[in-house]
Design a protein around this nucleic acid. Structure first.
Lengths: 173, 173
DNA sequence: CGCAATCAAGTTGTGCACAACTAAATGGCG
DNA sequence: CGCCATTTAGTTGTGCACAACTTGATTGCG
């Protein structure tokens, strides 16, 4: 997995003309950075438009998707599903609760835990959300196969990146 | 481009058992949503770790990449390159200026425009940034071919999504 | 010319992401 | 039992994204 060959036939071994190669890498990095960043925000923008009529933001929609699929869920579990910590979830859930879509209640079995469940209104929203995914898929202009490929690639990417982040990113291969 | 067939052999024509299909789509949407959202944040996390020693955030790095490649650039142009508006760029540039990395000056030719250029210190930072892309690429665990494929897919995605966002996302195909 | 439309940057307000921290409950161990 | 490490939510502070708005400069047209 390590030791791959790269653009100029270069390997992760110490190259001879590192400076010139580095400059080229900087250009490539700019491109991939931009692509990913732009795609992420473009996706966000389409979801924003589609979710507007539901009164949900994109992260709020993700939370509701989990609740619709699994029902009553502790904040901790929500965080694991979504890879979000309480610093993000607490205020988000507070807003969902203020909107009357979810109910939060401290567990009696373990009073550290807070259990979140959709309210009746929150459950009813699912019916209106059902047509969202089709519209998003249409907006991507990708075939189902391409969507699947993209997802596979993204999941591999996430796993690798998370591992790298945990173990530290080496300066040289 | 429109009118694609989907999972159950369904087309964008009015389907017969829309409800059951919709429920399945909701599950798929949860998956692709999560994948993209997670990948985006995982990428961000790795950049955060690598850029920490440069004292840059990820968006600040993107700005510096543009400035290193093109030199003196008006805020407007920066925004076009990065697809960011002044509401994001103004405070970001203010922080970069406070850090001594860029200089901002109102153009004398057109006093609406503000021109940004790297300071000497900002230019010097490029040397230290040169090794960043290699480390990121290593962290992805992807081959150069896969990186290229990913970029192609992401660019197509962004174009399609931006078009859909501009033209409005249809409820039914 | 004079004025309305346009344009660039900046400001304000809302929401998300995340690091660092606090507070309270729990569980294990001497 | 009593104490401490761990766990779970929540809070605080910083920075980004974006919509809506303000301000001031420029442009174009009657």
């Amino acid at each position: 997995m390590a030791r791959q060959s790269y653009p100029g036939g270069m390997t992760t071994e110490v190259p001879q003309d590192a400076a010139a190669q580095d400059a080229e890498w900087l250009r490539l990095d700019r491109q991939i950075c931009f692509s990913l960043h732009a795609a992420s925000r473009a996706f966000n923008g389409v979801y924003r438009a589609v979710l507007e009529e539901l009164g949900l933001t994109y992260p709020q929609y993700l939370v509701m998707l989990v609740l619709w699929e699994h029902g009553e869920t502790p904040v901790k579990k929500l965080g694991e599903h979504l890879r979000l910590d309480s610093g993000t979830l607490s205020p988000l859930l507070k807003r969902l609760e203020a909107a009357g879509l979810v109910h939060r209640e401290r567990s009696t079995r373990d009073e550290r835990s807070v259990v979140v469940r959709p309210t009746e209104q929150g459950g009813a929203l699912r019916a209106r959300a059902l047509r969202v995914p089709r519209r998003i898929a249409a907006a991507t202009g990708l075939t189902p196969e391409e969507i699947r490929d993209l997802r596979t690639l993204l999941d591999r990417l996430t796993t690798a990146l998370d591992t790298a982040a945990r173990e530290g990113v080496p300066d040289r291969g």
